[in-house]
Every structure is written in structure tokens, then in C-alpha cells.
Amino acid sequence: MKFTKLKRTFKEGMDNFRRNGWLSFATVSVLAISLYVISVTIILGVTANIVLKNIQDKINVSMYFNSDVEESRILEIKSKLVGYQEIASIEYVSKEQALEQFKKLGDKNPSITQALDEIGENPLLGALVVKAKNPNQYEIITKAISNASFSGDISRIDYEENKTAIDRLTNIIKLVEQVGMTLGIVFVFIGVLITFNAIRLTMYAHKQEFEIMRLVGASNTYIKMPFVFEGIFYGAVSAFVVMICLYATSKFLSPITQGSIGGGDIVSFYFGNFFIIFGGLLLSGIFLGTLSGIIAIRRYLKV
């Protein structure tokens, strides 16, 4: 018996949704825009974080030692530094290794090889490459190193050059997240309002029908349920629309994002997380639709 009721009110809700063509279209559009902005924000935030992680992994601080410092001395300093808790890893790059790497660059750029040949000896310095556990700690580490007893042996530290770039990137990502979140919240609010309004309009259009329904003995639940379903339809259809829009967007963005994410570009990210994204969208769409429906019923359906 309960099931028949559910089935019938579901059908009524679907009929409402279909019959009010324009109203449904407008509602779905606005709800879809809200969901779209929110999901773009979230996806942007997630990818930006992945990109940032990738870049952070590439960040390190290199200490170059004066050319007269012995290898044994460098290794001794290295073993001292291992004790720092901020440091994730230290790698020793000897003069010879540095030269190898530099020569590899020469394969692509013959002038490098030429220049090396001209100098005749290895002009490069031995270095310790330090990676921090947390990118914020590079500053502490560089300070500690430049104040250390062995600072006299160090020719230069190349942290400062990277620092501004890192800071700028972090700030941009923070800004994107904040703007996105604010926009998202605003759009959720607007989306709920519009859906709520659409359902209210349907109710207004059906005003006389409620009276009829009551007169033939329809229970309150029976009158209300179709509107909840109507809200659910708005949400679900919007979720589908957004899914398609997101695919188009990621397709459009994929050339720009090529290689910036671990698994390739943003399209593969989209498909890799298809079910999570779709499930999330569907759930939030249905949630927003239902919420709006319930608000509209509470506010306007006096039965």
C-alpha cells in the first residue's frame, strides 16, 4: 500500500515537472549553474592542490660548497644536517655528478659543451640538495644553515631565487579557493531560492487543485509528496546537465593542464573520478531540490 502511494505521488511529481516546461527549464538552469560553479570550484581546488604538491615536490634548497672544500667535509656536514627534524632528505651531488648533469644539458645545447671545453677544468661546485618536510620550513632551514659553524664553507644557497615564485603560487591557490568557496556558497543560496520559488509558483498554479484533492479525500502527505519529488527531479536533472557541462569544460581546459596533474590532464582526472563527481553532484542536486521543495511546502502549502 505504501508503495502504491509512493509510486503515484512520484508520477504526479513527474507530471508536474513535465507540464511546467518553461518553469522547469528555468529552474533546472539556475540550479545547474549553481552546481556547476560549485563543482568547478571544487575541481579547481583539488587540481590546484595537486599541481602545488607536484611543484612543492620539485622544490629544494641547494647549498654549494666552495671549490676547496673536501668531499669528506661535505659528507660530515651532511651527517650533521640529517639530525634536523625539518629536513626530509639530503642528497649529495659531487662536482663530477654535477658536471655529468650539466653535460647532458649540453646534448641539447652545444654552446654549453663548447664553453666547458674552453674552461678546460670542472668549474662546478659540490652541493647538498635539501628537501624540507614542509615548504614553509625552507626559510628556517636556510637561516639555520647560514648561521651554522660550517657556513664559511658554503659558497651560496639558492633558496631566495625560488622563494618568491613559491610564495606567489601559494597565494594564488589560496585566493582561488576563497573566491570559489564564496561564489559557491552564494550560488547554493541562489539555487535554493530559485528552486523554492519555482515550486512555489507550481503550487500557486495548483492552488485550486489542492482544494479539489482535499475534497476527494487526499491526505496531506499525498498532496505534498509530488512537490518533494518535483524538487528531486529539478536536482537530478541539473546534476546530469552539470555533468555534461563539466565534461565540456575539462575537454576545453585539457590542453592547458596537460602534464600538470600526476595522471595526465584534466579530462583523465574527470573520468578517473567520474563516479565520485557524479555521485556528489547527484546527491547535492537532490539535496538542494528536496530542501527547496520542503521549504516551499512548509511556507505555502496550507493543507
Partner: peptide, 26 residues
């Protein structure tokens, strides 16, 4: 109940209007 202004549901056929009274009572 029967009224002067009929009070039929406009989007339902004659059959569906009569059936509605039964649908609501399961």
C-alpha cells in the same frame, strides 16, 4: 461533493479525474 464550478483537475482526463478519488485512498 459536487459543486457549481465542477472542480475537476484540468490536466487529467475524465477517467483519471474519477480514478484520482480512488488513488488517494490507496
Amino acid at each position: 461533493t459536487v459543486f457549481q464550478d465542477f472542480k475537476l483537475l484540468p490536466q487529467k482526463t475524465a477517467f483519471e479525474n474519477v480514478a484520482y478519488a480512488l488513488e488517494v485512498s490507496d
